[in-house]
């Protein structure tokens, strides 16, 4: 019996691969369709991740060819680079606050907007989404949070008598992290917000009517039992977008709080990466930082998708 089973297995395997090959041949036109995108995507998105992983095990300063040094970069990062540990801590703080808060805010705002009368929805959507697409417009926060008494926030607070002397919002370690979190939340509702707005408007009205018959009492129950379970796909898309943007905070801290920021108080992994990659040209070390950033994003996505799977159960 054993032998026949094995032979049968082999025969099936052979038939399967012949079938697959036939399928491939039958669809060769489609591979041709996919080829241009695949080629560019592989060259500029997939290959770089692989190369980065490879370089992270080397010493590479661009001028000399890379030299294999095993896990030394990673050991140095975790055991002797104090600033990396600070950067890691800051990135985790920023990601765990701005990621989930930004994600939930994007959903709540989208849901609230969906409750508004139709004529005003497009306008309110624009109001909330404008900072996301406005690019470098966040630099205007520099004027608002300017540290001298002429800074706008300081001027208003002093005139109102709340503070006596100006606060150095962007250079005093006590306040910097809060300011950065506010600005990041302001500008990162992101593509997820649009997906939520669009997704909410496509849910079948009949579901809500059925819910009314089944005893759904108010809009909050409606949200939990009908809306959220029907939007899991959108929620996951929004989560992916939120993870991407919350782990990539770097440009904002660099431009608002300076580089390096006071006591490295808002120094993120991305700042550290730019430091070693674009200024010190220690590409191997920078690649190790990039790899750690990448791995933490993949894990964050795993955790988030398991959460989203539980909604409405």
């Amino acid at each position: 019996m054993e032998g026949t089973n094995f032979q049968r297995y082999l025969a099936r395997k052979k038939a399967m691969s012949a079938y697959t090959w036939n399928e491939v041949k039958k669809h060769k036109m489609l591979y041709l369709f996919l080829f241009p995108f695949l080629l560019i995507f592989a060259t500029f998105t997939l290959a770089p991740v692989g190369i980065s992983l490879g370089l992270s095990f080397t010493y590479f300063n661009v001028l000399e060819p890379p030299r294999w040094i095993g896990f030394t970069n990673y050991l140095n990062l975790f055991l002797s680079d104090d600033i990396f540990i600070i950067a890691l801590r800051n990135t985790i703080i920023l990601a765990t606050i701005t990621g989930p808060v930004g994600f939930m805010a994007a959903f709540l705002f989208a849901w609230f907007i969906n409750e508004l009368p139709r004529f005003i929805r497009a306008f309110v959507t624009l109001v909330f989404y404008a900072p996301t697409i406005a690019g470098s417009a966040y630099l205007v926060w520099l004027l608002i949070f300017s540290g001298d008494s002429m800074g706008h926030l300081n001027a208003y607070l002093m005139r109102a008598g709340i503070i006596n002397s100006p606060i150095l919002w962007l250079t005093n370690p006590d306040y910097m992290m809060y300011v950065i979190i506010i600005v990041v939340l302001w500008m990162s509702l992101g593509a997820g917000f649009l997906a939520f707005i669009a997704g909410l408007s496509t849910i079948d009205e009949a579901l809500y009517e059925a819910g009314l018959v089944d005893g759904v009492r108010n809009r909050w129950q409606e949200l939990w039992f009908i809306t959220l379970p029907n939007m899991q796909g959108m929620l996951l898309f929004g989560a992916v977008m939120a993870i991407t943007s919350s782990f990539a905070v770097g440009e904002v801290t660099q431009n608002l709080a300076g580089f390096p920021s006071t006591d490295y108080e808002v120094h993120t992994i991305v700042n550290h990466l730019v430091d070693y990659g674009a200024m010190r040209f220690e590409m191997g070390y920078a690649s190790a930082i990039a790899t750690i950033l990448f791995i933490s994003m993949i894990y964050a996505k795993r955790i988030v998708s398991s959460f989203i799977g539980k909604i409405g159960r």
Binding site: F44, V49, S52, A248, V270, L273, G277, M283, S287
Partner: peptide, 11 residues
Amino acid sequence: LMFNQYVTAIP
């Protein structure tokens, strides 16, 4: 979708 420009910048 999650590969941001910083991860891929050097390569």
